[in-house]
Design a protein around this nucleic acid. Sequence first.
DNA 1: CTTGTTAGTGCACACATGTTCACTGTAATG
DNA 2: CATTACAGTGAACATGTGTGCACTAACAAG
Lengths: 221, 221
Amino acid sequence: MDARTLNVVATRQADEPASRQERKQRTRQALLDAALRLLKDRTFDGLSLREVAKEAGIVPTAFYRHFESMDDLGIALVERAMRSLRTMIREARQNPATYDDAIRSSVHTLRTHVRANEAHFRFLTRERYGGTGPVQAAIATELRLFASELAIDLGRFEGLTEWSADDLRMMADLIVTAMLGTVMELVDVRTPDPDTDEEIAAKARKQLRLIVLGVAGWRSQ
Amino acid sequence: MDARTLNVVATRQADEPASRQERKQRTRQALLDAALRLLKDRTFDGLSLREVAKEAGIVPTAFYRHFESMDDLGIALVERAMRSLRTMIREARQNPATYDDAIRSSVHTLRTHVRANEAHFRFLTRERYGGTGPVQAAIATELRLFASELAIDLGRFEGLTEWSADDLRMMADLIVTAMLGTVMELVDVRTPDPDTDEEIAAKARKQLRLIVLGVAGWRSQ
DNA sequence: CTTGTTAGTGCACACATGTTCACTGTAATG
DNA sequence: CATTACAGTGAACATGTGTGCACTAACAAG
């Protein structure tokens, strides 16, 4: 049913001998991938060390050669997923001329990046809202940071240059929340096809347009 | 530390004898409450039957007299939590005169109801985004329904009477997402105090105002 | 009063879990 | 070539898990 084999460690490029640390990194990555794969229909704290080890094709005890606990693995996962997110943001940032261009291109890169890194984004959104413990905390921190940067970016748009930092932050938070909602929708589709994706993207664009239109009439109370 | 005792079953009103089915319902409720209590810092699928039974003060096997599985318990929990939500909505619905009144009173009832039923709302938001399986599905369905009703309500406001059903739905979804975000913030505060609550409420009001202001400039593309 | 129903008990089972420990084979280092 | 470092193994542990079964005691119905 699934092309990816269970024993990921065994799946190396044909017969690369590979150095020692290279192989180590490889199984470390295999553990992360295994976890990500299992997280498709399980919550992080409904996930056991043994399960992940088995899925990665190593014995449970070998897990400790790479992470000192599942929480540790979780944090590493957050870091990897956030790298995906940051890559996306950088691409979305190439200064757009108008609001409409910004919206259109942002939603486009969101859509493509989510589809290209489904597991990462699923993990991020799931654990952001549903998680507990260090993992949820780590994600919350990263996203707060991300919203701060967005607030700064927003401050450069016309009509927003006079806004207070507080108001910019509230708008940034609204946008982040709305976009995470969009990510959730994309990632929760069981069999993705371009039509439903476009539907979701269209809705996201409309939501952003609605928010942006509000700027014209805004005065802080 | 916590006033609520472990053995909830034993905690009945002094010495009410109570009928047979009354007592049954009582322990059923005790199981639901126990689960809700444990869910404060655990995910639903990181929750074991034995744990819940122990917290409720009964032996694991007695669990089956009330629910046939944990998923079953989960669904019952969704129903109870949704009753809280519906009660809230009904209160928020008393037809307000202006947009501003609607926003102010809605956010107020949101805030008070969330604080009065923290566990319910925490469960709802957590499992909405972070959950898997039947529980998450049940919540998703209920919230979709809720958004539909909100869309209809919105259609009666001035400036929105001409909107297409699709656009109303997209606006309703945006509002629901934003408000769930607010619920999350409220429920994630470790030590709630009126000041931070008011801060969160103020941000929610601003976000709603921003959205509503967008209505004036809207034309569907 | 007798009888049947049933919420809750206690024991048992076959697992799954996290972690420990002594081990092995092989790549890296001298 | 000899030695060391170390990723991965396999057996073992104490504990937690879901669930089956025979049970008890108290209530409800006849």
